[in-house]
Design a protein around this nucleic acid. Structure first.
Length: 479
RNA sequence: GGCGACGUAGCCAAGUGGUAAGGCACGGGUCUGCAAAACCCUGACCGUGGGUUCGAUUCCCACCGUCGCCUCCA
């Protein structure tokens, strides 16, 4: 079985076969750091993280590049307004992005190239395009000449006739002058007092699309395996990247294009512009756990389907994560017996085999994590049933622990829960736990129930098991 | 107007040409000092209308509904 991904260009499932055997080169469009990234943006970044994690399971080497767009018209406008340099303007947003990314357990890319650090490469590429007759200069600015690239539109299916200039209502089309509405800016000339770079093609700053072509080529080569982003990047961003890159190199730019669907709110796309967004800190402030948010964004539905965000969905995800955590706790706390394999061990090992096969198949089928988790949950019930019936051996316990570790190597939520758990009970909470254990030993149930309520008010839930009292931190939202 | 996606139980959602995983919530049980956890039982004619087929939720067409992109939004 090999990993297949849905390719936006061919609109088919395509097997991942790295250009360089054993080494997958992955480029994912990162954030424009003009503001705090919201959880809709993170849906895409988490999808890419899951992809990256699964690729690492399937191939010996993965090189992952995510760009940071740290120059664009909005950033320049804000920097001017604040009297900041570009770096000063973007530094806090980059720091915030790093923090949120870490909160959600997203593995860092191997490279985070910043547009402002690749001006030279962009200028080279623009000069190369001009020599190839694919770029022209107007009033000092450079534009890509669509007519020079007949294949334009092959990714999005967008043809010239269908495009309605300004239909999105997001741009001021008169900002720059172009020969053809479809032509797009490679380099924007600016005056001596404006923020820009003095280069051999003049003073200015880069257009949006050119950075991804220049940086991906610099770090991954002129052709590489997988390029990802949100669906809103298909047109024009990725369409333009293809045009620039292939017009310059004459080579196929990317093998497989993957795009994730949007996160919505009440049916509409979550977007800064609409004001219906929430940031990672916003969600945590309401009492949700990072694990629940990650689960919601990663596994609640398939990455190519839009997902409507709501408090109910978050609560739902919180409980789903709790079910996994409770299972892990149970497995870790198993009182195992040392004896030859019994029928229970056999039954569990059989379940685990089925779970592994099903999980891998689902993931190989275009990263169907919801399907994969369905298989896991279904298997957990089978295993729980067996565990209810009697003790198992230490080998079975290890097998289950390895299974959970492998599932979470992709899902990445148990690791976040474990991180949260390090918040140990404070002195008072610990005293209540001790007192409650003592009260139960003395069969003073009134006192033990009282302490249970008291601990619950601190977000600590206590359970009694044959092995004694056990506690766990629960989300305040849960009540 | 062009291109594209989606519509499955109370909610979320996977999936298949031969009558539908899983999660959450609800109800009833087992277990428990009581709980919790776990387990058992209980729920769907898969947007509407046609067509293809022995047979369609799954393929085709139309329609209805929702949404996305159409020049710097993940």
């Amino acid at each position: 079985m090999t990993l297949q991904l849905h390719d936006t260009m061919s609109r088919e499932l395509v097997a991942v076969e790295p250009l360089e055997p054993g080494h997958v080169r992955l480029y994912t469009c990162g954030p424009t750091v003009w503001n705090r990234v919201h959880i809709g943006n993170f849906r895409t970044f988490i999808f890419e993280d899951v992809l990256r994690r699964w690729l690492e399971r399937r191939f010996p080497k993965v090189t992952h590049v995510m760009n940071l767009t740290d120059v664009d018209d909005r950033i320049i406008r804000n920097a001017v307004e604040h009297g900041f340099s570009l770096d000063e303007e973007t530094a806090p947003w980059i720091a915030a992005f790093d923090e949120d990314r870490d909160t959600l357990g997203i593995r860092p890319a191997h490279h985070y190239p910043r547009a402002t650090q690749y001006i030279e490469q962009m200028v080279d590429l623009i000069a190369r395009l001009e020599r190839a007759g694919a770029a022209y200069r107007t009033d000092g600015s450079y534009y890509f000449h669509i007519a020079a690239f007949p294949e334009y539109g092959k990714l999005s299916g967008a043809r010239a006739e269908g495009l309605v200039s300004g239909a999105s209502g997001r741009i001021d089309a008169d900002d720059y002058t172009k020969e053809d509405v479809r032509d797009f800016a490679l380099w924007k000339a600016v005056g001596p007092d404006e923020i820009g770079w003095d280069t051999r093609i003049g003073r200015g700053h880069p257009g949006w699309h050119i950075e991804c072509s220049a940086m991906s080529m610099a770090l991954l080569g002129e052709s590489f395996d997988i390029h990802c982003g949100g669906v809103d990047n298909i047109f024009p961003h990725h369409e333009n990247e293809i045009a620039q890159s292939e017009a310059a190199t004459g080579k196929r730019f990317v093998r497989i294009w993957c795009h994730s669907q949007h996160l919505r709110v009440s049916g509409e796309k979550m977007a800064k512009r609409l004001g219906n967004f929430a940031t990672v800190p916003d969600v945590l402030e309401e009492g949700a756990s990072p694990a629940a948010l990650r689960y919601l964004l990663a596994a609640r539905t398939h990455y190519r389907k839009s997902l409507d965000y709501s408090d109910d969905l978050l609560a739902d995800s919180t409980m789903a994560v709790q079910r996994l955590v409770d299972f892990q706790t149970r497995v870790d706390g198993l009182h195992t017996v040392e004896e030859d394999a019994n029928p229970r061990d056999e039954a569990i090992l059989a379940s685990v085999r089925l779970m592994r096969i099903g999980f891998d198949e689902a993931m190989d089928d275009d990263l169907n994590l919801p399907e994969a988790m369905g298989i896991v949950f279904s298997g957990l019930r089978d295993v729980n049933r067996v565990l209810d019936s009697g003790p198992v051996g230490a080998e079975t316990q290890r097998t289950l622990q390895h299974l959970l570790a492998d599932v979470d190597d992709v899902l990445g939520v148990l690791a976040l829960v474990a991180r949260d758990r390090q918040a140990a009970p404070d002195a008072e909470e610990q005293r209540w736990l001790d007192e409650r254990a003592a009260a139960r030993a003395a069969r003073d149930f009134a006192q033990s129930d009282h302490l249970r309520v008291q601990l619950a008010s601190r977000g600590i839930e206590v359970e009694d098991t044959p092995q004694g009292q056990r506690w766990k931190r629960i989300s305040p939202r849960r009540g």
